[in-house]
Design a protein around this nucleic acid. Sequence first.
DNA 1: TTGAAAGCGCTAACAG
DNA 2: CTGTTAGCGCTTTCAA
Lengths: 340, 340
Amino acid sequence: MRMATIGDVARAAGVSVSTVSYVLSGKRTISGPTRDRVQRAIADLGYRPHAGARALASSRSNVIALMVPFRPGINVQIIMQFVGGVVTTAREHDHDVLVLTQDDAQGIDRVAASSTADALIVMDIESDDARLPALRALALPSILIGVPDDTTGLSCVDLDFAGAGRLAVRELAGHGHRRLVLVGASQDRLDHRANYAVRMRQGVLDQATASGVEAAVVPAEPTFSGGAAALDAVLDAHPGTTGLVVHNEAALGGLLARAAERGLRVPDDLSVVAVSPAEMAAALPVPVSIIEVPGERIGRIAVEMVIARLSGEDLAETRLVSATFTDRGSAAAPAGTSAG
Amino acid sequence: MRMATIGDVARAAGVSVSTVSYVLSGKRTISGPTRDRVQRAIADLGYRPHAGARALASSRSNVIALMVPFRPGINVQIIMQFVGGVVTTAREHDHDVLVLTQDDAQGIDRVAASSTADALIVMDIESDDARLPALRALALPSILIGVPDDTTGLSCVDLDFAGAGRLAVRELAGHGHRRLVLVGASQDRLDHRANYAVRMRQGVLDQATASGVEAAVVPAEPTFSGGAAALDAVLDAHPGTTGLVVHNEAALGGLLARAAERGLRVPDDLSVVAVSPAEMAAALPVPVSIIEVPGERIGRIAVEMVIARLSGEDLAETRLVSATFTDRGSAAAPAGTSAG
DNA sequence: TTGAAAGCGCTAACAG
DNA sequence: CTGTTAGCGCTTTCAA
């Protein structure tokens, strides 16, 4: 049994194909009775427009390409949240999502030149990302997740990591902590100029200055033992530290375990604020107050920016989602301080 | 500047459009010189076939739809590995991957009826999955990840969980352990009749009988505290247990932490074999011997099955990837036993 | 308010 | 070995 075409529908409803097309698109006013007949025919025949034919005739594929990093060591949790947000939101706008891998260098060009996709969302953008020239040259609208150094002509979304850093420091300083350390991204990530790490660090340092507290930065490998080692390094190099901002989910478990080993209670001896997706908390030994990385929300915004661009709004803009703090009790006044 | 079409290429090369088409597809023998001229023209013009036009004319979209579960509590790590395997392999066969969400009930029908995709890969199949009727009725080839109760007319791939269970028990029994417990999926997962949990359990119990050792099953919530609680439950309900098979990655950290708290050393007092993606090991406090869930490999196989089906090989088959054991030293002879 | 018809860019007969 | 041409199913002028 052949798939029903628009011609079959037209015949069944006793109208022309263009009328069916216009009933579907709503780009023309159709009389009530006619519309009803057409819609009944569509339902009866189980008609669905052929995506390829539509793309050919309208030069719109209704597909958004999404470039996803699959390299190991990445925070899988947040990637998935993000992808989920993108796919769900795209469907709400009648678009599908095509997945490209980060290392498919030709991918961007290919989907653009073949009209496979109408727009492109690129994740995991570095400060000086190698893909930026290709993206700037692109005829398709593109949205970057992450903020490169030079955003000229580009649309970007991300968590406001600088704000997150400031918020974390304010929270800890507010509890009376005077010596803080940011346990941040691995050296490797910093070498790659991961912009979120740079911005986070800046936010922490700026707010420390503003709040009149000390703050240092210690990198950590994204592993259990990396977290343990980082805690040792913190206490070694910065004795008297009572507040920790941890921006390294994979290291958090090891860090907390090491703290327990060393007899440090959270929050009595050590206050901890983590920047992390909310779901990761379940895998931790103790409740941890977090500044949530709202992956799904960022994905949603990215798609909404795409749709706006496709509807002709031609503004390239950078949107930073502001950070919010979720208190789970891991940050409190340091021991030897009156409560308050 | 308009995108170059096949007509532009034909004109530039001084040949007909069909010749260009055949140079591209290789479905006709073309003389060396002609092929060269065409290929030069293609390169000069930066020509790319229009995906929609191609899909329309050939009734092939070169797209594989992949239905991904985004519900919380799922093992994100393995999902990502799997998706990576699918996308990478699809590209090797000149296909792109479109993502559908699990709860997009219409998704299957939509991509099929609109000829958006040529085939469908569905993840996270339950024993009596609600989508099975739709999949059986589908005109498109579909591949399931997971094995339902009734596989008639369906193609499935998965890890051989029964084999994994047997392997784990053989490994522990071989070290001389006589009392084993499988710390498995949560009650919730069992209620959903997650087939992998059922098969794993069966493998463990069968091999225990065959090896003449005792084996019990304890469920665990997929959280840190769930793992800790599970260890308590094991030692409570099954005293004398010296070997654990853990098939619940999210609980593993909590389980190991609790063991340490209770003064149980791994492997001296407690041997542990986990079924888990390899990458998760980094987040654990101690090295753990694992039976790897080869997500990427399964994804690759799924795509290869799709491609075979699209090339006319019409066999529905179930492929179980056999389990392999990676020794990291967390399973050894129980204390009070001579080595060997 | 509706219809007729000209493409959109490509593939694959059919014809040499 | 190569060219001509009829569609593939839809959108959108143009015409009524």
